[in-house]
């Protein structure tokens, strides 16, 4: 009888303790990774490679996501706002939604799927095939070589991707507004830029930098801690994408509160 009551509690306790241990481990991992950015040697070639992988190769998927999101947003806003004769607000709704929220969040989720998984799989495979141990025996600190350049590259690349997403998202809204909904092009663009404030764009870019750090951190951490061959690498890849996606959404709320809550 006691076992029936205690077993679920014990399992809950183990889960909570495991969660706390993981949070602590991620925090220490992040600190160590970031500290290597300040101490030589620096691996510029690794940084460039990670930057190209994140920024350049994620560009098509981020661009397509942004443009279609802008198009859908304009269409949906029109059908909703038409009920209140407020169609003229579409331009401001699209530009503010894209720059503050949808640009950074959707770009980050897309990059989390691509890059978080790729980092976890590559570093996880290196872990289970002794390549990380080999780095140590070749007098190269694995955190400095594998983790630090990826963290920095993601923090630089995500805001640039989000800037592109912002432009293309607004462009998507403009395409629908002018070619389908009958808005005058110049008036739509003027309305967009009249409502847009610097804070809208800057808050989105700051969010992007934070999301970039989170994506690279979870990808590298899950890969670095992976164990147990192919199955372990698969689990690390899944965990990296799931954890970074949830963290992106949670941090989006926290950052929005910090920027805009009155």
């Amino acid at each position: 009888m006691a076992a029936i009551l205690l077993d679920p509690l014990a399992a809950l306790g183990r889960t909570v303790l495991g969660g706390c241990r993981s949070v602590g481990d991620v925090a220490l991992f992040a600190l160590e990774g970031a500290s290597h950015l300040l101490r030589p040697p620096f691996y510029g070639r690794r940084l460039l490679r990670a930057f190209v992988e994140i920024a350049w190769f994620s560009l098509p998927v981020v661009a397509l996501t942004a443009i279609f999101t802008g198009m859908v947003l304009a269409l949906q806003s029109y059908t909703g706002f038409a009920r209140f004769n407020a169609q003229s607000a579409i331009a401001s709704v699209v530009v503010i939604s894209i720059t503050r929220e949808l640009g950074p969040v959707l770009a980050a989720l897309m990059v989390a799927g691509r890059i978080g998984a790729s980092f976890a799989a590559e570093i996880g495979t290196m872990r289970v095939t002794d390549q990380i141990d080999a780095l140590t025996t070749l007098s190269t600190h694995p955190m400095k070589y594998l983790v630090a350049p990826r963290l920095l590259a993601a923090v630089i690349a995500l805001p640039l991707l989000v800037l592109v997403a912002d432009i293309l998202g607004v462009m998507g809204g403009w395409i629908i507004a002018t070619f389908k909904l009958g808005f005058v092009s110049e008036a739509y663009l003027k309305a967009s830029f009249d409502f847009l404030e610097t804070d809208d764009v800057v808050s989105g870019l700051v969010k992007a930098a934070v999301f970039g750090f989170v994506i690279a951190l979870m990808g590298t951490w899950c890969g670095y801690r992976s164990r147990g061959g192919a199955e372990g690498v698969g689990a690390a890849t899944t965990a990296a994408v799931v954890a970074s996606s949830i963290l992106i959404l949670a941090l989006d709320y926290v950052l929005t509160e910090a920027f805009f809550a009155r």
Partner: peptide, 17 residues
Amino acid sequence: IGDRIGMLFQNGALFDS
């Protein structure tokens, strides 16, 4: 001292990238 030590791993552990 570690700088003067070499290691050949069982599976080679060559860097695929």
